[in-house]
């Protein structure tokens, strides 16, 4: 009887240990890691037909925190889908949940990259120009 109780106790301890969180999570259930890197590594821009509207690769300046994109003539600027590729573990704020209106070219859109440790924040400005 004592042996059974002992085994049960060990099992309970194992379960408790196995459920212990090794890393903290953010509100989206993503791991908060120790990485402090914080930059955009690639940028894509899709039109309403989910095809790229870029004329060439976007120019990303990680020092000035700017992204410059030239889009095709005739691009529907009100209905664009930006896609960011970030350094490992980083997240974007605000999240992109659908199409974005880029039609006011004088006001560049802004997104903030947050590092894996959630302590470094860098705001990038996205400048669009239309090929003429």
């Amino acid at each position: 009887m004592k042996r059974i109780l002992l085994i049960q106790l060990i099992l309970v301890l194992l379960v408790v240990v196995s459920c212990k969180k090794d890393y903290p999570m953010d509100d989206d259930g993503l791991l908060i890691t120790k990485r402090a890197d914080c930059y955009v590594s690639n940028f894509e821009l899709l039109g309403a037909d989910f095809q790229t509207v870029r004329t060439k690769a976007a120019t990303i300046d990680t020092t000035a925190q700017t992204i410059n994109v030239e889009v095709l003539f005739g691009t529907d600027l009100k209905n664009l889908y930006p896609q960011f590729t970030l350094v490992v573990d980083a997240v974007l704020d605000p999240k992109i949940v659908g199409k974005v209106d880029f039609s006011d070219l004088s006001k560049p859109k802004e997104w903030t990259v947050v590092s894996g440790n959630r302590k470094v924040r860098k705001t990038y400005k996205v400048f669009l120009t239309v090929k003429q």
């Binding site: 095709l72 009100k78 209905n79």
Partner: peptide, 9 residues
């Protein structure tokens, strides 16, 4: 909503 009046290329 917000659809344009052109489709180029």
């Amino acid at each position: 909503a917000d659809a344009p009046d052109f489709a180029i290329n």
